[in-house]
Simulated scan of single mutants.
Amino acid sequence: MAKINARSVEMPLGVVIRKAPGATRWAAWSWRAVAILPGAGPAEWAELRREGDVVEYHAATLPLTLWADETEAYLVNLNDRIPSVYLVLREEGDDDRPLVPVLVTASPYEGQDYADTGEEIVEKIPMTPGLIAWVRDFAQAYHQEEVFVKRSRSDKRGEPRQGGIGDPRVQSDADVYRAPDPRRRRAVQ
């Protein structure tokens, strides 16, 4: 069911899209992603259920890939009120199939990146309990807390201390590239 790599794991997810009559006269149909099917086989707009004018399709099966470097994003998602997957859709000119599923991700950060472009539609679909457990197990196995280290300036960089380089525009009897000695300050009167 899931492909395993040293730094990633992958599971196929079926995407269920619902077609319902539009609520306004300007939109004949309303299309919404409503569910996912973990471990689904390949499909292309296979009809799952029909109730009157409302039809649900298994639109596509896309791989959900979890990466070891993205565990912080997965934990943020799991701590949300409703853990979800983010489905990226592109509009197509076809009236029968106006949306093309492109990508599915468990990272809210990646979902936000696609939403910010304005070129794609991003749907948030609740995870099933089994998928929540799968993502949680992966995140706990690979997550490493980043320790905050405050950077501090130090004069101990292995270089000799230089108070500055002389300005060639200043007339001086001595070497113009000689740095002034900070220990010899003249009193200004």
Rank of each mutant, 00 (worst) to 15 (best):
V34Q: 02
V176S: 14
D175Q: 13
D69L: 10
P180E: 09
P12A: 01
A133W: 14
P180V: 05
R136L: 07
A46N: 09
E47F: 00
A133R: 15
A59V: 07
A59I: 07
M1F: 11
L62G: 03
L64T: 07
V100C: 15
T65E: 09
R153K: 13
T24G: 05
T65Q: 10
N77A: 12
D95W: 13
A106W: 01
L66Q: 09
R25Q: 09
T24H: 00
W45P: 02
P38M: 02
A43I: 06
K124T: 15
W134K: 01
R178N: 10
A179L: 05
E72G: 13
A2L: 03
L13I: 00
E110K: 11
A20K: 07
D181K: 01
L62Y: 05
L78G: 06
L87T: 02
F148P: 09
A59F: 04
A174W: 14
Q162R: 14
G163H: 02
V16S: 02
F148I: 13
T105M: 07
E119H: 15
R7V: 04
M127S: 02
V149T: 12
T61A: 11
R161H: 12
R161E: 12
F138W: 10
K156T: 12
R7S: 07
A133V: 14
G163I: 01
R178V: 13
D167G: 01
E56R: 00
F138T: 12
S152E: 13
A43F: 06
V54D: 03
E145F: 12
A20L: 05
T65N: 03
D95C: 05
L37S: 05
V149K: 09
D137W: 02
P101A: 10
D181E: 06
A6H: 06
M1W: 08
R184P: 07
T61F: 08
E92Q: 15
A68S: 12
V100W: 14
D155V: 10
M1R: 11
D137M: 07
F148V: 14
A43Y: 04
V54P: 06
A27I: 03
V54K: 01
P182Y: 00
W31A: 05
E10W: 08
L87A: 00
I165W: 14
T105W: 05
P42I: 08
E47L: 08
W31E: 05
W31Y: 06
A43C: 07
G163K: 00
V102N: 08
L103Y: 15
A60Y: 07
G111Q: 03
A141H: 13
D113C: 14
L99M: 08
W45K: 01
G39S: 03
V170K: 14
R97Q: 14
